[in-house]
Design a protein around this nucleic acid. Structure first.
Lengths: 330, 330
DNA sequence: CTGAAAGCGCTTACAG
DNA sequence: CTGAAAGCGCTTACAG
């Protein structure tokens, strides 16, 4: 790789002038400009971004940290964010931390150290971080509300979502609804469960719970456990769509008809949920809006302060084929 | 963010000494070392990676460029690569280019400009690039074999895979097999189709083809088209698993029993394929081996030359529930 | 319009 | 063991 100095030499000008034509940062005489452009074309010169960002203190990069790259909800969010970043001239640097708090903190510091312009974090857990030092770049946190040095929080009303799901299941005639709850260290897992719990309390329903991680394998295993523990189950509220998909898989394998014998509802509304057969009833998160808001907030350089503003978005019930209302006899 | 100079000042030593304790790059007296470590702890100092990589000419980062972040095959490959990179102390920087050749070239140059240690590219198309300038970092290309300045190529024997799929379908009793072929600008799409074509030629089977992009929506639309165009179809060779999943969706919606009336086979063996119901029969790519080999080759610094070595891996048939051999009457 | 100079924050010979 | 100095490749005041 050639350097700006070589280009300058070949074009018979100073490095400063080369810099100016590359960046269009000042007027340069037509003749010199042409010479410089020619040399750049010939030498395939590509300015070193590292040097540039060392000076600029910006890499025009937004970091996105996710707990798992194997969860489609996260990659769909990443896809949206990626498009938004590209549209605004930023690179999205995706960092997977595999549900590891240490790797998460390292990734955050790494992003800071490489002069990223901001970070969007989907945390591995909702643990308190009020003693964590503030980053020097804006941090927007998704799907979580822990205490800590955060610029903004964005999450959906999961509690409400779980209540809607329960109301729907009841409306569908379910009497024995079990909740496959996600990790309780997690904000989404916790608040979805709370919604279930309070609904049960309010309606005098007995709680039936099974614990599960947010992945396909756990979903498979916990559904087996659930069937063993609650043989009378006629409704399942899964902690998210991928677990619901695993749940369906087991029910299907056991020849348990859905929704006739057991009704099933997921959470998130990932693309896949509308693509499998039967299509999954679920609680939808407005992924596009979340992404747009996150990008706006992280880029909103005018106030990089740690204010911890909270933005909570509504979820919605999407009724598809794994549940059926009582009156809708086929 | 504090700088190494401030730390040095507070500890009463030179920046060089601070650098030495941070990097363990030379002996430092126990006393000074302690003072420095204390100051670092107090000030939350994190060394600026940009400055470091400007000097080192390495960011300890491997770039991975994929055509689409919405295709699980790519994200599963990314997940494997991510684990391997982390294990070796490298960051994986994932760049999505949305099937756009310009964005792909930009991403490649960007990676070079940020001092990445190498790039792994899953190309958007198999177009000739012999006139493209060589990058200054090693480039490993996956799932493609275009001519160009590439360190190594890794791909699977797709041609063979398509032949295996066809042989299986025939063995299952299919007489009218249609091929939903992927983009012919793509190496995988092209060679899978070639396998189908030559099998038909060799066995006196009439070709039945429908063109399709590698995504869910295209799969949905093209299956509708296929049913219209080839009403007698009794076997479908899909260009990849996500298209096969879309295909199944349409067949299911039309109440066409699989595999009784139409047998279906995909390509790739993504996680999802074993998770849906019925489970998808497919041609499996050894993703773990591909990832391992790619990481080995890209990191193999001893010969960063552009040699274009080719590594072709075998695929295998995974028979599941969307096909059934004739003798296996249920 | 243009160049010389200083500096972004590190690291590594080079002396001692 | 330790520091002063030079340099990684850019960019931007500062003069002219």
């Amino acid at each position: 790789m050639s350097s700006i100095r070589e280009v300058a030499q070949l074009a018979g000008v100073s490095p400063a002038t080369v810099s100016r034509v590359i960046n269009g940062t000042a007027q340069v005489s037509a003749e010199k400009r042409k010479r410089i452009l020619d040399v750049i074309a010939e030498t395939n010169f590509v300015p070193n971004e590292v040097a540039r960002s060392l000076f600029k203190r910006s890499a025009r990069t937004i970091g996105l940290i996710i707990p798992s790259i194997r969860n489609p909800y996260f990659t769909e969010l990443a896809a949206e964010l990626d498009e938004l970043a590209a549209a605004r001239g930023y690179q999205l640097s995706l960092r997977n931390v595999g549900y590891n708090m240490e790797r998460e903190w390292e990734a955050l510091q790494q992003l800071e150290a490489v002069n990223a312009d901001g970070a969007i974090l989907i945390p591995t857990s909702n643990a308190d971080r009020s003693d964590q030092r503030p980053l020097s770049i804006p941090l927007v946190v998704l799907d979580s509300d822990f205490n800590g040095p955060v610029h903004s929080y964005i999450y959906c009303d999961y509690y409400q979502g779980a209540q809607m799901a329960m109301a729907h299941l009841v409306e569908c005639g379910c009497r024995e609804i079990v909740c496959i709850r996600g990790p309780q260290s997690t904000f989404s897992g916790r608040s979805r469960y709370m919604g279930y719990r309070d609904f049960c309390l309010e309606h005098g329903i007995r709680q039936r719970v099974v614990d599960c991680d947010y992945d396909f394998d756990a979903g498979l295993a916990m559904t087996e456990a659930l069937l063993q523990r609650y043989p009378q189950v006629d409704g399942i509220l899964a902690c998210n769509d991928i677990v619901a998909i695993s749940t369906y898989k087991i029910l299907h394998k056991r020849n348990i008809p859905v929704p006739e014998q057991i009704q099933l509802i997921g959470f998130d509304d990932i693309t896949l949920s509308g693509l499998i057969s039967p299509e999954l009833t679920t609680i939808r998160q407005p992924v596009k809006e979340i992404a747009r808001l996150a990008m706006d907030l992280v880029l909103q350089q005018d106030e990089p302060a740690v204010k911890g503003g909270r933005h909570v978005l509504p979820v919605s019930l999407v009724v598809r084929e794994t549940t059926r209302r009582k009156d809708e006899t086929e």
